[in-house]
Design a protein around this nucleic acid. Structure first.
Lengths: 338, 338
DNA sequence: CCGAGTGAGTTATACGTAACACTTCACGGG
DNA sequence: CCCGTGAAGTGTTACGTATAACTCACTCGG
């Protein structure tokens, strides 16, 4: 917990295992073929695990004179295209034991700064999305300062959290639809275990329970246009009161729902209203333009970084969720008189 | 040029300036207030510039025990949302003298690997998109192995290039439209100076010049839905033979064009055929689905990395452009009999 | 019985930097 | 005349790792 106790070094491991530092280096570097006995190697590995030893990358890189790390410079991160480029490059790099680091020319920071300043080494702290929770086990291995994005404040192991006020966004959507006169809802939920999606479901449910005469059906789909398409189609053909409002967990799901509705011969918003969440470029590309909740991603990033800086300086990060805003467009309208 | 001559160290600078290594460290670290004379400091800076000295980050990090670098873990890079998060975070970090490095849990690489393995340090090489050319001046400062993506093979200063066969893609589009019977074309071009866009214009022009009776008009727009909208509207209201085919430089422009056409009361593909380029998710989200050329971004990334690995190992990278493929969807049809 | 060979380690060093502690010199006040 | 002081540096060390070179048994074939 205390950042004061410095990380264990290979010498600490050596002492714990009763061998020399060189032996530790040999064992952990897999260079001990005929140099160290199996039993000693095992003892070293145990000690390393025990102490939670992680080699100091700066020292290793200095010693070796290279880093097996590669930089990918891309114009910006806003395109799915370069996201794919990165994925492919990272895969091959990983297969060759190389790491990959991204340097997106930041759009708002002016001309590209020196990329190498960004690519220093190791880490002083971490900002992590709750959707990348699988990577967190490794992160907790070191005791790095950590900030979680959109994560359960009570379940983040003491890490600071920075959250968008998703609950309020869902509240705004629900209110908007209720005001328009809708009573029968279908919730197209993301098939991803994450606190940020749990919040949506919880908020929608509790709000509708307070209004007599409403119904709520829920269907789950992977976050993709195809996933949303099939899930929506199935859900709408189920028996029961026909939904007049389709609340989607995000814009991408809404885009998929559009396609499903089109194939079913339903018109948006005449036959059914649709809402999204995110306000991606996609939201205004589809027809009719999507009523959704605008999440200010950049602001989110800024708050996350500010929180991390606070942690690094020993201060307590500012609390308080980041406000979001309903954007009403053409995909919502009063239900037709039934 | 030769990678063999190792990079200059602070000691080399010291020798060139006739001072001790410590003095160099003081001067370059801006810690020489009353410790070194102005004239000596100047001499040191000159020597450093002369030799092209860049401090070894690994050594510095090892010495200082920290890196002023922060990691952002995101679920994937495929969302515009997290692109924004990164941008905001990077801006604030930069303002505080921190670098930022991205570790996207790679979708195709299985569960998140140890993020710290990816965040090593410094660089052995660089892969750069031609659209990020402004960052390249800094890159050329060091003599790092460099691979350029989608860049003019003859103008890349000897760096290896890996290109998608965009020319062939445009050829396929043009052929497709000509076969359908189109003769009057409008080219919605990206307002971005880059070789990859020049190729599109050149290919389209030369192909159409070979077919008597065709016309080609060109209009430029920034790559955004709004930009495409206004540009398309203006271009279509110009006098002359009315275009029956709208060739867009990428899918995003095509999405913008859709909106413009809708407002002008033109139906796709009945009144006008539209083509894109990229095959983003967007292409199948809009209605009708877009005829476009599929660029395999991951494959592109893989080739880029392979090329870089080849350079690093002293081999010559494989030549040859990466094939692309026309995907015919609902946005293209024969022109109506005029 | 002796030297070569091998298994199992250890010792020592270097990577490039930052910073602490030290030296040298000139000057000026008492 | 001498000591204190400040400017202008320099010598040295440590950061944590990987590895070349070395040591010290112990075995075994001739």
């Amino acid at each position: 917990m205390a950042r004061g106790s410095t990380r264990p070094t290979s010498r600490d491991v050596a002492q714990a295992a009763g061998v020399s530092q060189a032996a530790v280096s040999l064992v952990l570097g897999d260079k001990w073929r005929g140099r160290v006995s199996e039993t000693t190697a095992e003892r070293v590995r145990d000690a390393a695990r025990e102490l939670g030893y992680r080699p100091n990358l700066a020292a290793r890189n200095l010693r070796l004179g290279h880093t097996r790390t590669v930089l990918l410079v891309v114009p910006a991160l806003t395109t799915e295209f370069f996201a794919g480029v990165y994925t492919g490059a990272a895969r091959i790099a990983a297969e060759h034991g190389f790491g990959t680091v991204l340097y997106p020319s930041p759009e708002g920071v002016g001309p590209a700064r020196d990329p190498f300043a960004s690519a220093q080494a190791a880490l002083d702290g971490v900002i992590a999305s709750s959707m990348a929770a699988d990577a967190l086990t490794a992160i907790r291995g070191d005791q790095l300062p950590l900030v979680m994005l959109d994560s359960d404040p009570s379940g983040s192991l003491g890490a600071a959290t920075v959250n968008l006020d998703i609950a309020d966004g869902v509240r705004q959507i629900t209110e908007h639809l209720l005001t328009l006169g809708h009573r029968h809802f279908l919730h197209l939920a993301a098939d991803v275990p994450s606190w940020t999606f749990d919040v949506r479901a919880r908020e929608l449910t509790t709000r509708l329970e307070a209004v007599p005469g409403t119904t709520l059906r829920t269907t789950h789909a992977p976050i993709s246009i195809e996933g949303a398409l099939t899930a929506t189609r199935t859900a709408l053909s189920a028996p029961g009161p026909h939904p007049t409002a389709l609340v989607c967990d995000d814009d991408k799901l809404a885009a998929g729902a559009y396609k499903a509705l089109r194939r079913l011969g339903l018109r948006v918003p005449d036959d059914i209203s649709v809402t999204g969440l995110d306000d991606l470029a996609l939201a205004t590309a589809i027809d009719p333009e999507l009523t959704t909740v605008r999440l200010d991603a950049e602001l989110f990033g800024e708050h996350g970084m500010r929180a991390l800086l606070a942690v690094l300086e020993g201060r307590t990060p500012d609390a308080g969720d980041i406000p979001v805003q309903l954007v009403v467009r053409g995909s919502t309208a009063p239900p037709r008189a039934s």
